[in-house]
Every structure is written in structure tokens, then in C-alpha cells.
Design a protein around this nucleic acid. Sequence first.
DNA 1: AATGAATGAGGGTTCATTCAT
DNA 2: CATGAATGAACCCTCATTCAT
Lengths: 223, 223, 223, 223
Amino acid sequence: MGQAAPVSTNHQEKLERLLELSAEIFADKGYHNTSIRDIARASGVSLAGLYYYFRSKEELLFRIQERLLRTVLDDLRRRLDDVHDPRERLRIFVHSHLRVFAQRRPAMKVLVHEYDSLTGEHREHIRALRHEYMETCLGILRDVRRFCGSGDAVVLRVAAFALFGMMNWTYTWYRPEQDVSVERLAEQLYRLFLGGFLRSGDAGRHLDRCAEPLGPGDAPWRS
Amino acid sequence: MGQAAPVSTNHQEKLERLLELSAEIFADKGYHNTSIRDIARASGVSLAGLYYYFRSKEELLFRIQERLLRTVLDDLRRRLDDVHDPRERLRIFVHSHLRVFAQRRPAMKVLVHEYDSLTGEHREHIRALRHEYMETCLGILRDVRRFCGSGDAVVLRVAAFALFGMMNWTYTWYRPEQDVSVERLAEQLYRLFLGGFLRSGDAGRHLDRCAEPLGPGDAPWRS
Amino acid sequence: MGQAAPVSTNHQEKLERLLELSAEIFADKGYHNTSIRDIARASGVSLAGLYYYFRSKEELLFRIQERLLRTVLDDLRRRLDDVHDPRERLRIFVHSHLRVFAQRRPAMKVLVHEYDSLTGEHREHIRALRHEYMETCLGILRDVRRFCGSGDAVVLRVAAFALFGMMNWTYTWYRPEQDVSVERLAEQLYRLFLGGFLRSGDAGRHLDRCAEPLGPGDAPWRS
Amino acid sequence: MGQAAPVSTNHQEKLERLLELSAEIFADKGYHNTSIRDIARASGVSLAGLYYYFRSKEELLFRIQERLLRTVLDDLRRRLDDVHDPRERLRIFVHSHLRVFAQRRPAMKVLVHEYDSLTGEHREHIRALRHEYMETCLGILRDVRRFCGSGDAVVLRVAAFALFGMMNWTYTWYRPEQDVSVERLAEQLYRLFLGGFLRSGDAGRHLDRCAEPLGPGDAPWRS
DNA sequence: AATGAATGAGGGTTCATTCAT
DNA sequence: CATGAATGAACCCTCATTCAT
């Protein structure tokens, strides 16, 4: 009677604490430069004890990335739910991304910086989630353009990557505690991007030597 | 005067070939995931032989980054030499950066991705060169703003990082051979940035919780 | 009187199932290459649960060997009970050994292949049972010889080991389902051995450098 | 001028010393129960230093087995070279096998006992060599039978395995220093086998329930 | 009677680096 | 200049085993 399955909950909680902690260490020293022993030491769990929670170091990395991506995607979907104005949707996208970045900095750095450290199925799995996120972004941009001008696929793709670049690069310099607030950062990046995006048109088209259309990139951010 | 130290030249050439090759491998597998043996194997030089050219693995990483940064800075200075129009200077900055990125992709990825892998003096040295580069960028942005509007330091800083983010992030997705040409990419990013930069003003200022004054605001974006 | 401890019976049954299963796995992968976890997985019992049935991995190995040896010895004694013809006794010995081999292949392989994996008292205990079995065999051979010729102890010993070699080696090649029937295999080995045994005499005696007397020689084989 | 490549020779010598030593330890403690550290300790070479000579523990096991098998096969071929009498050829086979067994006991035990510890290509390679050896044996037995009686394939196969069993099993009990001389052991086993082989005919044929002929087994001793 | 959680010890292997030649 | 040979330290991971429940 009363609460059910407290054991499982306990396990889940401890696991999440370990994910959080590991993300911090990976973010700090880099995945390959972090030893499982480092994590054992920091967590107070024995070396072997960790393997009760993850099958391998790479699975640990994978779980960190997957958990964050799911959070990001869920959060975004919820926020976009009943918003229809294209620019407002873009604004929400930028703000949501950066807010999560600020709140979960270590995991975000790991997600952005250590994608290449994954291999095999782990990588494939994360690639798929990143792809989904990228598609969401491209959809929004398409709507903005349809509303305000032409929607060249190549231009859209470059713009999307530019936007991700602006946002993701923050992990190299932005510290929420020392810099401007996330809200203001997000707003500035949003306006910076939107301002240029709306007027960029098919910039430099005439310069391009490759004629063929590129089609939708298979790379999410980059596979 | 006699022969000008042909041995030395030979040495220099071989060293540069090794730097290039190592950059490729580091870019491909990551610095920490690459072993000196990998480099020995790929170069045909014996394991011990490599240590004639570098004192340590980290020095190898350092040389790759330093060499590229010097190239970038020199190239940029030369191109900016007698150009005075602020926007044209910004345009040159963007194009120069991306052209080098495209021409020396492996080294660029290493420069961008493996900065944290440096320690001690090596890191400090590279930090200084990066700082110099950043200052050049900020100087250009300041000029653009002075020409066209207010030049809030915080806004400038965020804009500069946004620009770097857009450009540096390309290492994760842009392939010169498969994507749009570098020229077009550069032009689009330049316009995207400039368009937003010129109209972004002190976006979101009222949202900010930080107290410090930011200079006279201009018209809100939405008006 | 009442019920005869049904719990205990349950326990005994489960234990025997575990012995059987473990024998299979040990036979397949080798004792040292098998982990307790493998056994837990295969049996569906939890890792810790297994330790209710055995005190240690080695005790598990010991029980497998001991159980089989007792079976073999009991079976043999029963079959030899009222048989007095020496050759018939030998025949029974061979058939019995090989029949058990065929019926309990995994355990037999473990018994033959993993004797060295035992240590201390476990090893000593099994050694004693094996010795008993060997003595039974030697006794039979002695009778055969006494019946048909001289009974040199050395010759007997070598012959006994030869017989065991022929029989035990079957674990490396004989598969009851694919090869000749056990009956035929047993009969052929029996005749092969008996044929040679009866005529081998003190073969090669003159070749031997050992000085110890070997008893009166009989006619050379070639005569 | 003078001797060529002394370095290579040195390397080869050291490697062979390591093979020999490792064979002893594997024979003594078993392959899976021996750690590379044990070998390092016994050889005086550092742990990492060993990996200059073998790529892996399994390759070490493989080399031990391969080296011995090549020795055995070469030796046997040389001895059989100009001998034509079938019985003499059989005699040479048995003597050769046991002499090598006695001279290289540790390696022989490893070859016989640790075949299952090999995997993948290593195993396949050894399997092929064992097969070649087995075929040589079968060829000899066929000749003996053709000379003296019928040559049933199944009987031959069983006889061959019986012979191998007699000989290989010696690793479990025979100590050249304490037992009869190798020559005498070989002679006795040879006569024991030949005596039975020549008179065994198609023993127990009528007992067999499986009718189909077995054809030449693919297993050497047992793959 | 059974298990989830945990651990110390040790496994095979790779690493950056050195040094005599 | 260049290398073959060697090493100490550290890596990730698995092991048999225990103990509170």
C-alpha cells in the first residue's frame, strides 16, 4: 500500500545523477580525455559499480546525448503547439534552444562537441534525432520565407546551418552567470538572424559555379 | 655565397608535410583518439623518427594550430591593407575566413575543435593569437556600427561571436566539393549577418536583468 | 512419518538441473572462460541466487565431476557384479564407460578436460575417485593377462592408459547423433584394444634404457 | 660482408624463447588461467614489451600451436620419405609423434588441450594443419589395411581416432623422466594398436543402427 | 529462497615516450 | 637522421563474490 516500486525510482534517480555528473566531466575534459576512473572518483561510486548503470563508456556518452535531445525536442514541440505565426515560431525556436543550452550547459557542450565520438548504432540513433530537430528548424524557416519571399532550398539550408552555428557556438564563449541574460542573448540572435534572413534573398547566386540543386541535406547538423 | 642550407629546407618541407598529414588525421579521428602510431603508419616514418620533428604529441597539435592562425592573420592583414569602407572590410573578413576554411579544412577543424586539448603555454600562445583575430573582427564591426548606428560593446561582442559561430560551425556540415561554392557561401553568410547586424540595434535590451548601461537605444525592431 | 520433505526434493531437483546446465556451458566454453553470469543468464536464476546452491564457482565444477564419477563407478559395479569371465569384464568396462560418455557428454568432457582446473581439497577428492576407477580398470586388465599370459605391471599401466586414451579422446571427435552408434564404437574399441593387448607382450623391452627388472619376458611379438 | 641481418636473428631467437616459455606456463596453468602478466614476470620482459612480439594473447597461443604442428609435419615427412612398407610407416608415425611429444611436452599439451581456446582465423588455420596430419595418418592406416585385409572407411576413422587418443592422452600421465623410455612407450603403443587393428575387422558391424556411410570426416582430430 | 546493488582485484591491451645504435 | 626495441602508466572492462533486504 502506498507508493509503488521505490527501488526502480531510486535506480532511475541515481542514474540521472550520474548522467548529469558525467556530462559535466565530459564537458570539462573532453570525452576521450576523461577516464571512467575520473567519473568513479567524482561520483563516489566504485569503478565496477558504474558498470551496473552503463554497459560501456560510449553508452554513457550516448545516454547523455539522447536524454538531452529528447528533452529539447519535447520542450520545443510543447512550446510550438498552438503558435502559428511563422516569425513567432522562429522566435520560440531560438529561445527554446538557447534556454536549454543555458540550463544544461554541460550536456549541451557534450551533445555539440562529442557527436563524432559516437560510433555504430549509437551514432546512428543520435544522428536520427538530430535530423528530426534540423527538419523542424527547416520547416519553420520555410514558413517564414513563404510568408515573406522565395524559399530556395539551398539558401534555406545554409541559413539553417548559420542559425545553428550562431546558437551552438555559444558553448565556446557564453557563460550565463557572467554574460548577458539568456533572454537577451536569444532575442539578439533571433533578431540578428531574422533581419538578415528576410533580406538575404538568393544572395550571391550569380557567383555560384555549381548549377545542380542540392535537395534536402541528409545531414542533420552534420552526420 | 655557396649553397643555402639545403638540408634545412628539406627538413622544413618534410615537417610541413607531417603537419598537414597529422592535421588530416586529427580532424578525422579527433586529437585524443589519434595515436602517434597512427601518424607514423600514415606517414611512413617510424614511430621514434617522428620525435625528431616534434618534442611531443601536444607540440604537434600546437604547431598545426599556430601555423594556420599565422596564415589566417597574415592573409587577412594583406587583404585589408588599403580597404577603408567598413562594410567592404567586413566582407573581406568573412570571405577570407571561409576561403581559408575551405582550403585548409583539416587544420581548421583542428583549430576550432581541439583548442581545449592544449594545455599550459601552448594553450596560452594560441589563446593570444585567437584574441588578436577576435580583436580584428571586433574592430571591423565597430567601424560598421559607427558608420551606421550606435556601437554598444555588449551588442558588438555578441554579434562577433555570432559571426564566428556561423563561420566556424561550417566545419560540421560544409564540404566544398559537394555544397555551394565557397564564394557563394561566404556571400550569403556575409549578407545574412550584415542584414541583421545593421538593424538589430540593442535588441531585447529591456529584457535584460543586468544593470549596466548600454548606451542610447535605437528604434525597436518591430516598429 | 508424514510427508518426506518436499521442499528438500525441490531443492535437489533444481540443483541437479543447474549442474546439468552448467556442465553444458563449461563443456562448450571451457571452465575458465565461463562466467557465473553466463550460468545465471542461461538458467534464468539471478547471479546472487546461484550462490544459494554452490559456495563458489569451483565447488560447482567439483560437484559436476563428483556426481558423474559416482554415477560411473556405481553403474560399473552393478554391471560387473556377477560376471567373472575376464574378457567379458573388460568388455563391460569399455561399454559402460562409453555409454556414459555418450549419455552425459557435457559432464564427461568437463570431467576429462577440466580436472586441472580444480585445486586443493576438491582436486584431491576427485583424484581419489579417479584413482579408484583406474584401479578397477587395472584389476580387470590384470585378470585378462593372468588368464592369457604374463602380467607385467609396467605393461599393464601403459595399456590401461592407452585404453583410457582411446576412450576419453572420443570427447574431441565423437558425436552420438552423427557417428556410428555407441554400441558399435564400444565394440570396435574393445576389440581393437583386446586384440593388441593379448599379443603385445613386453613389447620393446630390449629398447628400454631403464634398468629396473620387469619380470620374465615372453616371446617377442614377431616370432 | 660477413653475416647478414644479425638483428633479425636476434629477434627471432628471443621470440622463440618466449614461445617456449609461454608454452610451459600455458601447459602448467591452462591458457585462460594464465595472465600475460604471468608471462611477463617469468620472462623478465615488461608487460608492454611482450606486445612487440605478439599482437595478442591469442596470437601467442596460435604461434605456439602452429610452430609445433609445422615441426611435427616436417619431421614426419622427412622420416617417411623413402619408407614403403606399410607397417614400418605406421611404426614411424607412432614413434615420431611420441618422440616429439616427449621432447616438446609443454607445447604438445597446449596443442592438444587448448585447441578450443582459439577462435576465428587462428582456429581455422590450426584446424587445417591438424586435418593435414590426420589425413597422413589415415593414408598410412589405409595402406596397412589394403595390405592385410579390408579397408572400411568407418573402421579406419575410428581406428585413427583411437590411435590419436592413445597417443595424445599421454599428456595426462606420461613423464619421460619418470616413466618408461619414449622408445619403449612408442613401441608398446604401436604394437598394441597394430595387433588389434589387424584383427579387428569390421567389429560390431551388425550392431550398428545407422546404415549410411560416413565418408571422410572433416574433423582432423576434431575441429 | 532469492535478488538488486555494489565492489576489489585483476584481466588484456594501448599509450606517449625513450634510448642505444 | 632514423629506427628497433622497450617500458611505466594508464586505459576500459569483467570477474567472482558479498550483503542488505
